[in-house]
Simulated scan of single mutants.
Amino acid sequence: MRACVVHKAGDLRVEEWDPGLPGPGQVVVAAALGGICGSDLHYYHRGSVGDFQVREPLVLGHEVVGRISALGPGVAGPAVGAPVAIHPATPCGACPECVRGERNVCGQARYLGSAARMPHVQGGFAQRLVVPADQVRALPPGLDLRRAVLAEPLAVALHAVRRAGEVAGRRVLVTGAGPIGSLVVAALRHAGAAEVIVSDLLDAPLAVARQVGATATVLADQPDSVAGQAWPDDFDVAVEASGSGAGLGTCLQRVRRGGTVVLLGLLPPGETGFMGNLVVTREITMRGAFRFDREFDDALSLLASGLDVGPVISHTFPLSRAVEAFDLAGDRTRASKVLLDLEAK
């Protein structure tokens, strides 16, 4: 079987890969589609994500859908051939966070395509992969694989919106219109947000944000107006999805007194300065949002019900052209969510 493997910064290869045989409680998934995420791009370009360094060959990918290929001992289903999505996290289930129901921040969790541990947790950009059976989800009726591949990033967005608290009828700012930011827009509109204004440095991602529900957009380097009107200074909630200090600054400056800022985008490694006095004097609530847990199932249900997030997907490449796909995915002037077709010859 072939897989997309990173060896070090700038060294991405499509090569033979042996996924092994399923053990007790495991299944084999014949992967069909995988979405390239920002963390995959970091591993490719930098050889790391934050403090997690690639120290051995790592199969990338954690946004993966496919079909059950084989069942390990003791596994009753889903049946062979069933289309499934894969929840990429395996929390420990025993730590205080897991016991409290905060499994997404489990310190011992394993995550597909992650270099956080040694040996690394191999990811899903492979034609076959072996995973615990409780990580696979049979797709709801009517949900095809191409839409289902957005379940993982949509779950990230849903978790961020939940961290924001009540958003129905509220005015929300989203900084960053990449795939995650645009999915946050869709999640906010589904949750009843009255206005969702999105900022970004580029026109192309802002166009995607408008297609999935943004009520207005603004170029971040031209921040004095929104569609010709003055910026509102009373956002109830701001979601920082750009992963930049400038985006965080915009959120803190634009949210109302007593408002809430959700930090979703991962900031650069090390310390990032921010306007702490604004947090104090305006009593702004700041909340982090990391990955997701049961929102993955909610995402599948929303996609099955017809939530329109299709415009987030911009390109699809066969596995054999993975390097080309990664290079394009890093070009935000041309691409949004780029998929790998893991079945294509």
Rank of each mutant, 00 (worst) to 15 (best):
V5L: 05
L12N: 10
P19N: 10
G20R: 02
L21E: 15
L21F: 02
P24M: 09
V27T: 02
V27M: 02
V28I: 04
V29N: 02
A30H: 11
A32F: 01
G34S: 14
G34F: 03
I36A: 10
I36C: 09
L41E: 12
Y44C: 11
V49S: 11
P57G: 12
L58D: 13
V59Y: 04
H62F: 12
R67H: 15
R67G: 08
I68Y: 03
I68M: 06
S69I: 00
L71T: 09
P73C: 01
A76N: 13
A79S: 15
G81S: 06
P83F: 09
V84C: 01
P88M: 07
P91S: 14
A94L: 12
C95N: 12
V99S: 11
G101E: 10
R103G: 14
V105G: 08
Q108M: 13
R110H: 13
L112M: 13
S114L: 03
A115P: 07
V121Y: 07
G124A: 14
A126L: 05
V130S: 03
V131L: 11
R137D: 11
A138P: 12
L139I: 00
L150Q: 14
L158C: 01
H159M: 00
A160G: 10
R162I: 00
R163F: 05
A164C: 03
V167P: 04
R171G: 08
V172L: 02
L173H: 13
T175P: 01
G176Y: 08
A177S: 12
G178T: 01
G178I: 00
P179W: 08
I180E: 00
G181P: 01
S182V: 00
L183Y: 02
V185R: 00
V185N: 01
V185G: 02
R189E: 05
G192D: 07
G192L: 03
V196S: 07
S199R: 09
D203S: 12
D203L: 11
D203C: 01
A204P: 07
A204N: 06
V212G: 02
G213I: 10
L219T: 10
D224H: 14
D233Q: 15
D233A: 15
D234T: 05
D236V: 00
G249R: 14
C251I: 06
L252I: 08
L252G: 07
L252R: 07
G258D: 11
V261K: 04
V262H: 04
V262E: 06
L266P: 02
P268Q: 06
P268L: 07
E271A: 11
T272A: 09
G273R: 13
G276T: 10
N277V: 07
L278H: 11
V280F: 12
T281R: 14
T281I: 07
E283F: 01
I284C: 11
F292E: 11
R294D: 15
L302D: 08
A304T: 06
D308I: 00
P311C: 09
I313L: 13
H315P: 02
S320I: 03
R321Q: 15
V323E: 15
E324C: 04
F326E: 10
L328T: 05
A329I: 06
R332H: 14
T333P: 00
R334C: 08
A335E: 11
V338N: 10
L342F: 05
A344F: 04
A344Q: 10
